[in-house]
Amino acid sequence: MPSERASPGLKIAAGAGLAFLHLPILLIFLYAFTTEEKSYQFPPPGLTLKWFAVAWNRADIWPPLWLSLQVAAVSTLIAMVLGTLVAAAMAQSRFFGREQVSLLILLPIALPGVITGMALRSAFSVVDIPFSVWTIILGHATFCIVIVYNNAVARFRRLHGGVLEASADLGANGFQTFGYVLLPNLGSALLAGGMLAFALSFDEVIVTTFTAGQQSTLPIWMLTELVRPRQRPVTNVVAIVVVAMTFLPILAAYYLTRDGEHTAGAGK
């Protein structure tokens, strides 16, 4: 039967496609150990660990890293609250304007980042808001909402509505039902959404350049280094750190939601 087995051509095309996606990232790891300082020479003339120490001692890396962590943490927190609220409302009832609400949530991530960034930039200019950590957070939280929402809404859909009624039936008021039944069942999905939101925010650069003013998040620091390289191997080391900081939450999110709902991040 022709539909039962994949043809060799298809296998090769699919495999090559996946390899195309993965190999470049692996290359970064190699470059972090190169002894070559001035160019991107391949293959590296020698391998060394010294750039990790050099990067560690570079004073200009720490403030951007700290700012990125701060922004990602606060944005994630805001997105988790807002995303969960929308998901709860969507799960609770069908109301007029549902479609519009879900479009509104999706829009900040479906439209190119430059639009969101430029829009925020215009708004800050029109209303005369000076750039600060909060202007960055404002942007990040906005496009992180959809990530949390996607995860939460999938779990709400899977959660058997009867258990909320059962809880009320047994005498629990709304707050007890929330704490004893809803939250424990929603928890891992929210955590997954939060982690993805964190990864997204930690890595975001397109919107951030419009909302950061003179401040530098880690991605902005990296962007500057890419446009005007100073010490290339240090950039390589930072790149590995960034990869790790985003990989781990993504893997964790995947394992938190893996049974049944393949939604984690499906709408980045």
């Binding site: 009867g162 009624e165 059962a166 039936d169 047994l170 629990a172 069942n185």
Partner: peptide
Amino acid sequence: PNRRNVNTVFQDYALFPHMTVRENVAY
């Protein structure tokens, strides 16, 4: 519902999946 002194056995039971049997019963 939470203040009505009647209780329900639901069609598909609606047991709390994250609790033990005892915790379910004692809820």
